[in-house]
Amino acid sequence: MKKTSNKVVLVGAGAVGTSFMYSAINQGIASEYVLIDAFPQAAQGNALDLADTMAVLPQPFTSIKAGDYSDCKDADVIVITAGRPQKDGETRLDMVAGNAVIMKSIGEEIKKSGFKGITVIASNPVDVLTLVYQEVTGFDQHKVIGSGTTLDSARLRRLLAEKLNVGAESVDAFLAGEHGDSSVAVWSRASVMGQPISKYISDGVIKQADLDKIREEAVHMAYKIIELKRATFYGIGVCLTRIVKAVLRNERATLMVGAKLNGEYGNKDLFTGVPAIIGENGWEKIIEWDLTKDEQKLFNESCTTLSAAISKAREAIKK
């Protein structure tokens, strides 16, 4: 990775992509930005709109423009959000075939550019499409990161914080597995300011039934938002910024990203949400928690669900 100015390329200048870009430029994580979209006018219009912030930002960037896949060659990070959006009442896995074909096309173009950096993917179903991209490109698995359950876990933290009447930043709580309906709440690792959530249960502050309800609400939050305003984008935009910043600044931060399992947690050959160390080389190591028996069972079921969707995606891109 080059060590001069940081360059980020966005593929997919829709609501999710531009929310990421707006968050990224406000946090000053890079110097150069490029937007690529199947509709060039959308990329150009958003680039011009975002460029209007340059004169007033506390950490201004150097350049932002609409571009094409040739701009990927010297990028440090590519963020992919392209694909059709989730419809009201539709699960993320319902989108697999069509978006797998789109991801294959994108991956082939990026590989052709000579890109050597890190790719961060948020296109849905993200776990499946991250694997499609990695297999199509042949890129080092550690250099391909799915957004995983970063957003899901942020939702869980917020809801638990509201229940306990504390700040969300004081809460550590995690959803693992699929970014979707089968994700697993790892309550055995949840804590507030270092105090395990089990202590709050034993003290009568919160009940397991409350935690189950919070998990359900977090997992189905996207459906609620889509019903109300047709799409979700601000939360994932900020989560993508968090991941990309960890890469560009070599933070070695631990985040719930989509990393490829190679036997960790008893599963393999798929990307899914797990705790991993993130730095300039991508996801560097998966952290293996000792899950409870029930958590492991639910995680295995989530992986089985993803494996079935992966088969559909592979079938779709063969046609």
Rank of each mutant, 00 (worst) to 15 (best):
F233S: 13
F233K: 13
G17V: 07
S202A: 06
V128G: 09
S23M: 07
I29K: 14
E284V: 09
A97I: 08
R314F: 02
R230L: 01
R242Q: 13
V136F: 12
L175T: 10
E162S: 13
Q141G: 02
S113Y: 13
D203T: 00
Q208N: 15
I80S: 00
T91L: 09
I121Q: 03
I201S: 04
V96K: 02
G194L: 06
L255D: 13
T232E: 12
V8C: 05
E216H: 14
S123A: 10
A122R: 10
Q41V: 07
K143T: 07
L10D: 02
I310N: 09
V219H: 03
I277D: 07
V79Q: 04
E251H: 15
N6K: 15
Q44K: 15
C303P: 10
F115R: 02
G114Q: 09
Q296V: 02
G279F: 01
I278T: 03
K143F: 05
K104I: 14
V132F: 12
I243R: 12
F174N: 11
L159F: 15
F174D: 10
G282M: 03
Q27N: 15
R314A: 00
D294Y: 06
M221T: 14
A122Y: 10
A176T: 07
K7T: 11
E90Q: 14
I197E: 06
G237D: 06
A75F: 08
W187N: 01
M193Y: 00
E280K: 13
L175E: 08
Y133L: 04
K319E: 07
P58C: 11
A122D: 10
G204N: 08
N250Q: 05
I80R: 01
V126I: 00
I286P: 05
